[in-house]
Design a protein around this nucleic acid. Structure first.
Length: 299
DNA sequence: CATATGTCCTGAGAGC
DNA sequence: TGCTCTCAGGACATAT
């Protein structure tokens, strides 16, 4: 569920670990199946020991934590993973922990006196345990991550969409979820983007017009930036939280996702439909999102 | 190669 | 109340 806006919110929420030094890394035995960690935890711990966090960035739906500009932890929350600094959503779900100390150069007088600024904890919670954590160096980052993923969704332009999507015959909704084509879009935002663009989610990519790709590109930026502003979507199951256990509020802005049977907020006559594509729910308005037609989008 | 399907895992909610 | 069943969907492995 964490898609680009939720992962971006996580990154912003943990950025205060920058300048801190790794003191301890451990997998938490929580009674649930351990999450996938590569390489084994002992090697991660050894490699990161005393290294300083030099940056927290994001690529698609992954959180990247850089150490001495040389190594990075790649955290993939997948369905239910949460990267947090505090306030456990549920104690039994804690899977991974990094304890930091403020490194000597980052220790100013003011902070030296207050104990609660001397250490920090980075926690990974995952209700279902499908998330993964990988330690990489710069080369692995290039070959195992950069090369396999499409451009980050916030970088997408109509030109890039045409280059990367226009040849495939897959339905646009399904293709938008392919992280090799574009990184960061998941089931919720794919639905919202296509609604805003006025494009039928079943349309084959190779049948979309240039005009339609322009609307998709524009809607991608508009939707994702708005969702970041609202700190992501916390659905009715309440799973998603930000770094300090707060909820996102973009779910209040959803126009189609999980709104089956409700009247369309745009055309009033339409009812939001739910169909299944590639074993996933797709929500859309049949009258606002037609395969062809000159209807104006909401942009 | 492109595309489609199955699998991982847990907890919430439905139905009886 | 308490049981069983289905479903949620991100990424990758395997199949077509």
């Amino acid at each position: 569920m964490p898609e680009l806006p939720e992962v971006e919110t996580m990154c912003r929420g943990i950025r205060s670990i920058e300048g801190y030094q790794v003191h301890r890394v451990k997998l938490i035995p929580c009674g649930l199946k351990p999450i996938s960690v590569t390489p084994e935890i002992g090697e991660i711990s050894q490699t990161l020991d005393r290294r300083t966090v030099t940056g927290v960035t994001r690529l698609g739906k992954r959180v990247l934590i850089w150490f001495d500009e040389k190594y990075l932890l790649v955290i993939e929350p997948r369905m239910t993973g949460l990267v947090m600094l505090e306030n456990p959503p549920n104690f039994t779900h804690l899977r991974f922990e990094v304890l930091f100390q403020r490194s000597r150069k980052g220790l100013d007088k003011q902070h030296a006196k207050s104990a609660n600024h001397r250490t920090k904890k980075l926690l990974f919670w995952d209700r279902r345990g499908l998330g993964t954590i990988r330690l990489m160096n710069e080369d692995q980052y290039q070959s195992d991550l950069k090369l396999r993923l499409g451009p980050d969704a916030l970088e997408m332009t109509a030109k890039l969409f045409l280059e990367r999507f226009a040849k495939t015959s897959r339905a646009i909704k399904v293709a938008l979820l392919d992280q090799g084509l574009v990184a960061g879009i998941g089931n919720i935002y794919a639905a919202e983007i296509l609604f805003l663009a006025g494009v039928d989610p079943r349309t084959q990519c190779n049948r979309l017009s240039r005009k339609q790709w322009e609307r998709v590109a524009s809607a991608t930026r508009v939707i994702l930036n708005a969702a970041i502003k609202y700190e992501g979507s916390t659905l009715s199951d309440g799973t998603y939280r930000n770094a300090i256990n707060g909820e996102g509020s973009y779910q209040q802005c959803h126009r189609v996702y999980d709104r089956e049977g409700n009247p369309c907020s745009r055309c009033a006559e339409g009812i939001i439909q739910r169909i299944v594509q590639a074993q996933r729910s797709t929500f859309f308005c049949r009258s606002c999102q037609r395969k062809r037609g000159q209807h104006p989008s909401l942009l």
